[in-house]
Design a protein around this nucleic acid. Structure first.
Length: 795
DNA sequence: TGCTGATGCGCG
DNA sequence: AAAGCGCGCATCAGCA
């Protein structure tokens, strides 16, 4: 009891300044402290300024000595810094968002920054964070110091003798972690600052580049060599947290090709796709670890050596510890365990190579495209300049010009009810300005996304996009820096991506894969038999819809007549003729058929995944300048489900399963957790979850098929014959050595029809899978037949 | 001045 | 009552 009291006396709470009307400390803080178990009567309260002050400036805080006086007078052991001003006055740094919850010890006093109650009042979502921080502060006070992980045993390698001890300790389950100068290994000054290994007994830090340690180049080379030999021995199983990052750096900087055995981030991704997967968060929820996050300076190994190593040691320690825990959790669920073992971990290792290789960019075309876009922007600006001198990139300014100055009718509103200056609005506005503006926006966006946006990442002739295997809740990959998956289909941009001399780019995609999977899952007989007969599903939907609605009668009769070379007068007969002829034959006669098929594609996906007819009206208007009446839209939806009667029962079953169990699974066993689906109330969130229960397994499995094929082809045709360079959801991009293009393409198409891994997952599809290959610069590729002809002529 | 959220648009 | 799903990036506006 006595000890407690003594401790309490040494606590100081620092706010910004007294309130205008009272000298009492802030009530929210007092309440939170008491809720956590503090006796606030025994806590000192003070402020940075001894009088009320509206907005303290940086220099005012610097000049003010009140807090320093208080610190000298009270000599607290624990100081709670409330808000950014207190943080700055006490520690001389700002940035409460970053610093909150990070204790710092100076001369035996622990300073602990938290949000100010004013901020919480302004944004109440921050309240739980403040509360959590206060609890952590209490934890520090009862411990009497910043809690340290007790299992930690840091070993800093300062000599070759240390290093040899380290290598001897590397056996069995070993965590691996690097500290680097940044995130992009191809940056000009990028370097690995420290290698770390976590074993059962120690956390070994090998500071390669730190001001306090100096190695000769030979010594570094020796150590890397020794480590490489140790890894090749097969006696070490490497555990990583987002190890693709560390392995990529290791490969770029030291040509190392180590294999990851288990990645904790990917494991947790499969166990709960809805949460974060960063190590600090995982250590906290699994082991109640303290927040050991530090400034970038220390993360990048520029701070005091022992602090840097201690940080790295935490990463190593928890990564290894997480392995044992997550391994057990995966074991509880055979479905996700399979996805982890046979897809995610192999892909993690494969994608190191994919990112290392990157995609090849044609430099000449790149410069040409830049010039072309700049000219286009200048031209449209010339036109726009006649109307006003404003920032044409600002929707607000454009909006006020359109609707206030020019008094154009407001046809579309934004979600917040403001008059919209978006694409859908501009398309409906009949004014020369809108055309120029649309052109301007398009060119400007292409320039800033794909020309300017790519420049910082260009490493000679290559981009190295980063794929996140944990990037989506459905299991698809996401891609960034830059995002290869959002490159426009416009050949001006897309064809910039190609292959280097001696190699050819091959894109292979799974044709209509989501519809095929849906047909399988729903056991939808009409669609299944359509696929069996080799009919294009979008074409089927399109002709059915036209036959029902009787739209575009003139075109239908004309095309049918041209196809059979006689006058066709009966509409139904004409539709049948068109259906049998297929999209390619019709598109040759009239390009509109291509558009109609595209529209049907959107209808298929929209209605299949729960789109309502209202959205269809908007879609038809925005994309096809077609005004569809409410009745027509409603009918089209009904007609879709009449055409494919298997879908409704399947939708029902998915929804029912999700609302009962709170999750659904894809064919591979991957789980999509949808807790909102279990809600008793019929909220928009629940409806959203129910729609996801239909979409997620389809999207998820489409991606898995694609990855299975990618894994298999890269095993059968490894470098230097074939380099996988990326995926775009249902497509793979490969760079294939010129002399092997036909063989590899043919094999890949075959693999896509049924990857070997399907057997391992015991999946038997009722529907055939087809691949489609395009050979040549991206978006300009040709079919295998065409390519072989051209290639034969060239040789 | 640097962050966050909203918007808009590219892709599947 | 309201109803396709999944992403990343640039830009602007609003705020501290």
């Amino acid at each position: 009891m006595l000890a407690d009291r003594k401790k309490h006396k040494s606590i100081l709470v620092v706010d910004t300044c007294p309130q205008e009307d009272s000298d009492e400390p802030d009530q929210m803080i007092v309440d939170m402290l008491e809720d956590t178990g503090f006796d606030t009567d025994k806590i000192h309260f003070t402020t940075v300024f001894d009088h009320f002050i509206e907005k303290p400036s940086k220099s005012m805080i610097r000049k003010n000595t009140h807090l320093q006086d208080e610190l000298r007078r009270i000599k607290p052991k624990f100081v709670l810094l409330v808000g950014n001003t207190a943080l700055q006055a006490a520690l001389g740094k700002t940035g409460i968002k970053k610093e909150r919850g990070r204790p710092e010890e100076i001369d035996g006093t622990v300073f602990y920054p938290v949000y100010s109650p004013a901020y919480v009042g302004y944004d109440e979502r921050q309240a739980p964070i403040l509360k959590m921080d206060i609890v952590n502060f209490q934890n520090i006070v009862t411990h009497g110091k910043i809690p340290r992980e007790e299992g930690l045993s840091v070993r800093i390698v300062r000599s070759l003798a240390d290093f040899r001890r380290c290598v001897r300790d590397l056996a069995g389950i070993v965590s691996y972690d690097l500290e680097t100068s940044g995130l992009y290994p191809w940056a000009a000054d990028a370097e690995i600052r420290s290698l770390g290994f976590g074993t059962a007994d120690h956390q070994w830090c090998i500071p390669i580049h730190h001001p306090d340690i100096s190695w000769t180049a030979e010594e570094i080379e020796y150590m890397i060599d020794e480590l490489d030999q140790r890894m090749q021995s097969g006696e070490v199983k490497l555990i990583t947290q987002n190890g693709k990052f560390d392995m990529l750096w290791s490969r770029v900087k030291y040509k190392l090709r180590w294999k990851m055995y288990f990645d904790t981030m990917l494991a947790h991704y499969l166990l709960d796709e809805n949460m974060n997967h960063d190590l600090k968060y995982l250590s906290k929820i699994y082991f109640n670890a303290p927040d050991y996050d530090v400034d970038v300076e220390i993360k990048q190994f520029r701070g005091p050596l022992n602090k840097c190593c201690e940080y790295q040691a935490h990463d190593l320690y928890y990564t290894r510890k997480l392995y044992f825990r997550l391994k057990k959790e995966l074991k509880q669920d055979l479905g996700v365990q399979n996805v982890f073992d046979h897809i995610l971990m192999p892909c993690a290792n494969l994608f190191v190579g994919i990112e290392y290789r990157g995609v090849f960019v044609n430099h000449q075309d790149f410069d040409k495209a830049e010039k072309h876009l700049r000219a286009k922007i200048a031209d449209s600006l010339k036109v726009l300049g006649k109307y006003a001198d404003i920032n044409w990139g600002s929707p607000k300014q454009v909006g006020s010009l359109l609707y206030e100055k020019l008094k154009l009718p407001i046809l579309v509103k934004t979600k917040k009810g403001a008059p919209s200056a978006g694409e859908s609005a501009l398309k409906q506005i009949d004014h020369p300005l809108s055309k120029a503006l649309l052109e301007y926006r398009g060119a400007k966006q292409q320039l800033s996304f794909f020309i300017e946006g790519w420049k910082p990442y260009l490493d000679k002739n290559r981009l190295h996009p980063s794929f996140k295997l944990h990037g989506t809740v459905t299991g698809r990959l996401s891609c960034e820096n830059p995002n290869l998956q959002q490159v426009p289909r416009d050949p001006l941009i897309r064809s910039l991506i190609t292959a280097p001399p001696g190699y050819t780019l091959v894109e292979v995609d799974l044709s209509q894969i989501e519809l095929r999977i849906a047909a399988h899952m729903a056991d939808e007989q009409n669609l299944l038999s359509a696929f069996e007969r080799g009919i294009d599903a979008h074409w089927l939907t399109m002709t059915r819809e036209m036959g029902r609605s009787g739209s575009n009668a003139k075109l239908v009769l004309e095309t049918a007549s041209a196809l059979v070379q006689r006058k066709v007068k009966n509409f139904g007969e004409a539709i049948d003729i068109i259906f049998e002829a297929g999209p390619d034959a019709c598109a040759e006669l009239d390009p509109r058929w291509k558009e109609f098929r595209k529209k049907a594609k959107a209808i298929n996906f929209g209605y299949l995944f729960g789109m309502w007819w209202r959205k269809f009206i908007q879609y038809a208007r925005d994309n096809y300048d077609v005004e569809v009446t409410e009745k027509e839209a409603q009918d089209s939806r009904i007609s879709f489900f009449d055409s494919y009667p298997g879908f409704e029962p399947w939708h029902k079953a998915q929804r029912k399963f999700a609302s009962r169990h709170g999750f659904v699974r894809s064919l591979s066993g991957r789980k999509r957790r949808l807790p909102d689906a279990m809600s008793n109330r019929d909220t928009p969130e629940k409806q959203e979850a129910l729609r996801q229960s239909i979409n997620a397994p389809v999207q998820s499995f489409a991606n898995e098929l694609n990855l299975m094929a990618l894994l298999q082809i890269s095993e059968e045709y490894p470098a230097p014959i074939c380099y996988p360079v990326g995926t775009v959801h249902d497509a793979c991009l490969l760079e294939v050595r010129d002399d092997m293009v036909a063989e590899v393409t043919r094999r890949m198409l075959k693999i896509m029809e049924g990857p070997d891994l399907l057997k391992k997952f015991d999946i038997h599809l009722k529907v055939g899978i087809e691949g489609e290959a395009k050979i040549g610069p991206w978006s300009k590729g040709v079919s295998l037949e065409k390519w072989e002809k051209q290639y034969a002529e060239k040789v």
